[in-house]
Amino acid sequence: MRRETLLNAAVLLGLLAVPLWAWASDEPFIITLATKVVILAIAGIGLNLALGLGGLVSLGHAIFFGVGGYAMGILASHAQSYTPLMEWPLLIEGTKSMPVIWLLAVIGGACAALVIGALSLRTTGVYFIMITLAFGQMFYYFAISWPAYGGEDGLAIYVRNGFPGLNTLDPIQYFALCFGVMCVVLLFVARLAGSAFGLALSGARQNSERVQAVGLVPYRLYLVAFTLSGAITGLSGALYADLNRFVSPTMFSWQTSGEIIIFVILGGVGRLFGPVIGAALFIVLEHLLGGLSEFWHIYLGALLLIVVLFARGGLIGLLAGKEVAHD
């Protein structure tokens, strides 16, 4: 077995073992932290599809994270106040059911990514970075200035939404649910990366002229990747909102986009488990350094600088060596 496969298995087991241990020793806070890692990892896996496979440096993934969060917030707030979402032309009610919310978060994230991708992918390189960042800011200000759903204050949801057959209020059960979702997403992305589409996308990243020469259109490949990426990040946004039972414009902020990129980079760009390791490392650092000093972002910044300047390939690159050409 390859070292990376072993490492991935160890990460997955560790991510299961820590909350189980916390559950046994009655430490609900640790379970919540582990749930946060899993949910943020899903957001990172979404971005890694666009960034790692497609080479699209998106600084606007907070948009899809926020869209997913607001999908949950809007539906659940209507359900908790018993007001219909709209009455004409057809009656749409709010809902507290997670599967329905997830479906809408995925559709919302995908639609937002499709429109933004269609516009932004007309450009490349540094333009693309700036434009995705600008669109993120647009959503942020829109969320702040639109008063119907809390505006700047955000929306609080009093009771976590339900999933058939589970008690989601129990931290370990919600963790298990999120962990299950993450595994499904990982499986999906792994299959996608090995599929004809994934190979074509990887090819377009490495040499777009050659991909064009064999008759593929890079723009379409990128757009599909960006849309799928937005859908996955949207799903994680809905999960994250449910974890906190709170949605606010902060989910749309450019710092959120930056943090999602950090997960991917700390772990390792283009590696399947990169975002999982990156998110875990980020949360651990947040709590270790956050305990040391109020100004822990300085250390995070310094660490990030060191990783970028000297340790390219992230933690996986450090532990498992360079990527193998053929899986």
Binding site: V126, H297, L300, V307
Partner: peptide, 17 residues
């Protein structure tokens, strides 16, 4: 550009804090 974005993002964190 990805490395540039990240390194300068790290600088923002350092400057702000």
């Amino acid at each position: 550009h990805l490395d540039q974005v990240l390194a300068t993002f790290a600088l923002i964190l350092i400057f702000s804090e």
